[in-house]
Design a binder for these strands. Structure first.
Length: 493
RNA sequence: GUCCCCUUCGUCUAGUGGUUAGGACACCGGGUUUUCAUCCCGGCAACAGGGGUUCGACUCUCCUAGGGGAUACCA
């Protein structure tokens, strides 16, 4: 049987790192099985829907670079792939269930149907017997013909699924094994078709998964409680359900479902911060799953080949921003000069250091600068601060920045004078020669090499922390460095 | 409250009856080094608890505890 899996986001918010992980697992499973990965837009919540979120969804996956085989933009044999465009389908199916006696019209107001404990605790620990929550199934007792007449007459209604009052529903989860529910514990008669005519997730997802030939449903474990409900629906329709696989959740440091309070969660935020897609994909793929023992760097292609359900963990995983940062550093260091330049350019441009389309001169400068920062960037957004001195004259730092420990302003100024001399005499075209010259001069004049270089570093780059000095000056140009030294010497006078 | 799922170093994980319980991140030491990084070497650190099964349990089973999730006309 052909493997067909889907990612079914709801455009009611920015793409979340947790959902993207679900998408990735689905994608990897499809690829590893030679199957198809399908995108379906679940835009049935009209109150929270926004076009901006749809756009964000496309932007996110275009950026990440793993894409679906069928979807709203690509088309495919099961189109349309947008649920709002399949509107009629759901009504038909809901009514079919009503006709089958598996569902019923409900005229209760939203409020009357609201979930609430039928036996609130008294508060002293002497709790009453369970009783449960949820819709009290009021309209289930209505006469079907009468109900149909009221619905046809235009009375506001929803359609609810009849959950069997007795018995159990069981299913086999590919990861978790057999799971059995007492029907009495299943959400009592959930809404299938809302009063606005749109389906709820439960109806739409079952109808579409069936119609689109979805073979495996991989989704987060938070969905487990609605699985029996879906199984009951497949059974009511007389359909064979897809295989189910509930993926471990992603938690924040405090052990709760990952959310904004834990830090960035929107893929957009990671992107803006300067994470590489390779790092994000690699890291997220390893949350709750392992590949080859002993290896930790995997490309999307590697993952596509190595992915297996057997290697997914059952336990939830904590999202570790620190480890993601390490991955990011690893991938930044793997970039060649040109690619690193193109990755950094938007950040540099945003900081006003270069034009949006860098000039030839700027490009040359960037290319020369890439090797200086590659080992030093944690995020692409670190680039502007690290390279600003190449594009603008840095503001004069506080004087104490120039003065090495145990030395004074006069000594610092003397050091700068020596540096200026050396720069003029030997230049920095050759690191070896420059270093040798500075080293012997330092020794001759009673400076530690670091104490000689630090004032120069601060004068030229504006900070005590910079890329390697000689290389930096070489890229900047000695002619641009000298005035900065003069400026510093004056300030120290 | 009720139901369901889960449980190896702080974190991500390897491990499928017999291992000195391995790796990675973090952390702590040390080395390289003109700052910061990178890089290299070393160290710390875990099978939730209790019953079984077994010659032998991290591995199988049961119970307890703890954690998480679900209990919507949101997905």
């Amino acid at each position: 049987m052909e493997v067909r899996v889907r990612y079914a986001p709801s455009p009611t918010g920015l793409q979340h790192i947790g959902s993207v992980r679900t998408a990735l697992f689905n994608y990897l499973f499809a690829r590893s099985q030679g199957g198809k990965f399908i995108l379906r837009l679940e835009d049935t919540d009209r109150s929270r829907f926004s076009d901006a979120y749809v756009q964000n969804m496309y932007d996110t996956f275009s950026w990440l670079g793993f894409y679906w085989d069928e979807g709203p933009d690509l088309g495919g044999p099961c189109k349309p792939y947008i649920q709002s465009e399949r509107f009629e389908l759901y009504r038909e199916h809901a009514q079919r269930l009503v006709a089958l006696g598996k569902a019923y019209y409900c005229f209760c107001s939203d409020k009357a149907a609201a979930a609430e404990p039928s036996n609130p605790a008294e508060g002293d620990g002497q709790d009453e017997a369970p009783a449960g929550f949820g819709y009290p199934r009021t309209c289930r007792a209505l006469d079907p013909a009468e109900a149909k007449r009221r619905a046809d007459a235009g009375e506001s209604h929803v359609i609810r699924l009849k959950i069997p009052l007795e018995g159990t529903t069981k299913f086999t989860d590919l990861l978790l094994g057999d799971i059995e529910w007492k029907n009495a514990d299943v959400n009592p008669d959930p809404v299938l078709l809302k009063s606005d005519g749109y389906p709820t997730y439960h109806l739409a997802n079952v109808v579409d998964d069936h119609l689109m030939g979805i073979s495996h449903v991989m989704r987060a474990q938070e969905w487990i409680p609605s699985a029996p409900l879906h199984m009951i629906m497949y059974d009511a329709f007389g359909w064979t359900p897809p295989a189910l696989c509930h993926l471990p959740m992603v938690l924040g440091q405090d052990g709760h479902k990952l959310s904004k309070r834990h830090g960035s969660t929107a893929v957009d935020e990671f992107r803006t911060k300067g994470y590489l897609k390779e790092a994000l994909i690699n890291y997220v793929a390893m949350l709750g799953c392992s590949y080859e023992d002993g290896r930790d760097l995997f490309s999307l292609e590697d993952l596509s080949r190595l992915f297996t359900i057997e290697h997914i963990n059952k336990a939830p995983a904590v999202f570790d921003y620190v480890k993601l940062e390490w991955f990011n550093g690893q991938y930044i260091r793997m970039k060649g000069d040109e690619e690193l330049v193109s990755l950094m350019t938007p950040y540099l441009a945003a900081a006003g250091l270069v034009g949006d389309k860098p000039s030839a001169a700027e490009s040359a400068l960037l290319l020369a600068a890439a090797p200086l920062v590659r080992e030093r960037l944690k995020y692409l957004s670190d680039a502007p601060a690290a390279l600003a001195f190449l594009f603008t004259e840095p503001p004069l730092p506080p004087l104490e920045e120039f003065i090495p420990k145990k030395l004074d302003a006069a000594r610092a100024k003397a050091a700068l004078a020596l540096c200026k001399q050396l720069l003029a005499a030997v230049g920095v075209d050759s690191h070896e020669e420059a270093e040798a010259a500075f080293r012997s001069k330092a020794e001759a004049e009673g400076f530690k090499l670091g104490d000689l270089l630090m004032p120069l570093r601060v004068a030229v780059t504006g900070t005590k922390v910079s890329p390697p000095l000689f290389e930096s000056i070489k890229v900047l140009g000695v002619d641009k460095a000298l005035p900065r030294i003069d400026r510093a010497m004056e300030a120290l006078s």
